[in-house]
Design a protein around this nucleic acid. Sequence first.
DNA 1: CGAGTTTGACCAGCGC
DNA 2: GCGCTGGTCAAACTCG
Length: 305
Amino acid sequence: MDDNDNPDPGTDISGDSSWTLGAESESVYFFGSDRESSILSEFGWNLQPEEAHHRSLEPERFGDVERIESSDLAGRLPLAESSGLECSAAAAQIGSAEKAGDASTSNPSVSSSSSEDPPEKSTGSGGGKPPEIPSKGRKKGQKRIRQPRFAFMTKSEVDHLEDGYRWRKYGQKAVKNSPFPRSYYRCTNSKCTVKKRVERSSEDPSIVITTYEGQHCHHTVGFPRGGVISQEVTFDGRMTPPLTSHFYFPDMSFHREGSHSGSMAQSHQVPAQAREARALAEPSPQLPTDEGLLGDMVPPGMRNG
DNA sequence: CGAGTTTGACCAGCGC
DNA sequence: GCGCTGGTCAAACTCG
């Protein structure tokens, strides 16, 4: 059992068979960045077409990952738009939306994310875990709740890219067909259920695949290097960053258009003006519009210099 | 001492 | 039903 299981080894971004956009509203974004410092670019916040190196990925590489257009994404993702959204509420919305067609389990545990609320290791560390706890904390018979996910492919030398949030690693696993392990991170905010997976492409070790799952319900804690992002409320809260339209889907757009020989060049033609236009046309109610586009992309603290 | 990481074990889902 | 694999837990460990 080596690799014959997976017909398309390599950048197995799907990783598992659950990567099906149609079913779980996941999307895939691809960005390339020369510098680790251009984290914002990875998120599209400051993506300059001339700086971004969109990687062309063969459709086969994505297997069952459906490609959708950014404009569709917003409508297809179970969004939690309420500005006062709380983590548990967000999870509930997502869970219900996501599992709507799933066994109608109306999983009470979903809404009651509070039930799993404090992952706070009530394990009474030191008490020594009972040698035989069958469920090991996880409710048995309780399906794993999959929240919307999306992945970034980033060319970077560092595995764990700074995104303004603080993450705690809770696991690492060797991945099939990949010499590189996959790391599992969880938002350190006890009320935030967002998770993140980080792995390197087996084909191109310089590419880091970061997969986000869930929605943040809080602000970032800021970049260690000084900058502070305050934008992600929109980004994470809606799963459609103010830049949803800023994101380019090299394959996706033409996949949908069908005819256009969707080339990278074409996606590169989507100028910043277009993004700006959209930003102006659809100002996020959650964002201070008086700040203009800059306010959308650069927090006040970062503008000084 | 608290926060974060490491790591082995456990569990669930899925394909055969 | 079985085995494989991904995902998670939690004790032990490390670090600041």
